[in-house]
């Protein structure tokens, strides 16, 4: 067990904070979901700003509105969709490394956009792991730990120039990544979708959904616009007839059709088996975008090939310094 110190103490909003990483890759077989951060883009950016390992544990903060006090001298980075940050009552920029002295008070205002922002610390926060991930191990607490060996009292010059120089570029990149308006999600169609008549495929692509209040990290519930009832009924009847009764393994991002009124997109904390009809799976980079969208925002669907989705994901991970390898 490494020696650790308390890095920060939360004084407001602890119920909206959880420690996260990229989750579990090898336990779906016994019914344990992969879990992990909702928005890998925000999380990886925060770690990247500090030169951390891509999978370093960081805080996932839902909707902002938190305050904490640093307990050690440290460097942190906060990444989200334009979060407003104050250190000792002075506004500081997001998207860059921030040097904190022990005793500094930091607040993140309630988020005006998006659902989550991510707070990384040099070397990552420390927690016990379960199935090789910290996800779910350390939630809603008032104190978060770091390993003593990771406490860094100064960034190198190159770190500092990276943090400041890239700031504007990163803010712009973040704006470009996330959707301000309606998100047209690209999905990898399953065999069932591929065999549908063109008219039904067109119906599916013409539907607009509104994100329901009852959406969370297990699933996003999507309500179809009421004037599209005829299309939605036709799709639902058609697809239900083509779907068997037996439960099957489900993916992150699977689009399920439990009824003609409401569809569900399965998110990171989903169950591992399901029996509802499905038309396919939203590509991962669009799922990270979706995870930042709020109830009331709109989404629709267009198909993409699995090859294109793989290429997009590979480019995304390369840009964010994550070469995907097993987390063994």
């Amino acid at each position: 067990m490494p020696t650790t110190s308390t890095a920060l103490i939360v004084t407001k909003g602890q119920e909206r904070i959880s420690l996260q990483d990229l989750g579990r890759q090898q336990n779906l077989s016994i019914g344990v979901p992969s879990s992990g951060v909702a928005d890998e883009h925000g999380y990886l950016r925060a770690n990247q700003l500090l030169g951390n390992k891509a999978n370093a544990p960081a805080l996932e903060i839902m909707l902002g509105g938190i305050q904490f006090t640093a307990q050690v001298d440290c460097f942190i980075a906060i990444f989200g969709i334009a979060p407003e940050i104050n250190v000792n009552d002075k506004a500081v920029p997001h998207c860059q490394a921030l040097q904190l002295k022990s005793g500094d008070q930091v607040s993140i205002s309630p988020l005006k956009q998006g659902i989550y922002c991510y707070l990384a610390i040099t070397g990552g926060f420390f927690s016990s792991t379960w199935f090789e991930s910290v996800a779910g191990q350390c939630e809603h607490q008032t104190s978060y730990q770091v390993e003593n060996s990771q406490i860094k009292t100064g960034l190198t010059k190159s770190d500092e120039s990276f943090a400041t120089k890239k700031n504007k570029q990163l803010i712009q990149a973040s704006r470009n990544f996330y959707s301000q308006e309606k998100l047209i999600t690209r999905f990898i169609p399953n065999t069932l979708y591929e065999h549908l008549d063109d008219a039904i495929k067109n119906d599916i692509q013409s539907l607009t959904f509104v994100i329901d209040n009852q959406s969370n990290k297990m699933g996003y519930r999507l309500n179809r616009e009421s004037e599209e009832i005829a299309h939605a009924n036709r799709i639902f009847d058609h697809i239900t007839q083509l779907t068997g009764d037996l439960s099957k393994p489900v993916n992150f991002g699977q689009i399920q059709l439990p009824s003609d009124k409401q569809w569900i997109v399965l998110m990171k904390d989903r169950q591992t088996m399901g029996g509802y009809p499905t038309i396919g799976t939203i590509m991962k980079t669009d799922l990270f975008r979706l995870s930042q969208m709020r109830p009331g925002q709109q989404i629709s669907f267009i198909p993409i090939s699995v090859e294109q989705a793989q290429m997009q994901l590979s480019m995304f991970y390369q840009k964010l310094n994550l070469i995907k390898t097993p987390l063994k």
């Binding site: 077989s29 068997g244 037996l246 439960s247 099957k248 393994p249 993916n251 088996m273």
Partner: peptide, 10 residues
Amino acid sequence: DSVIGFNSIM
């Protein structure tokens, strides 16, 4: 990883 169903495997 792999997930086994009644008549399927992912």
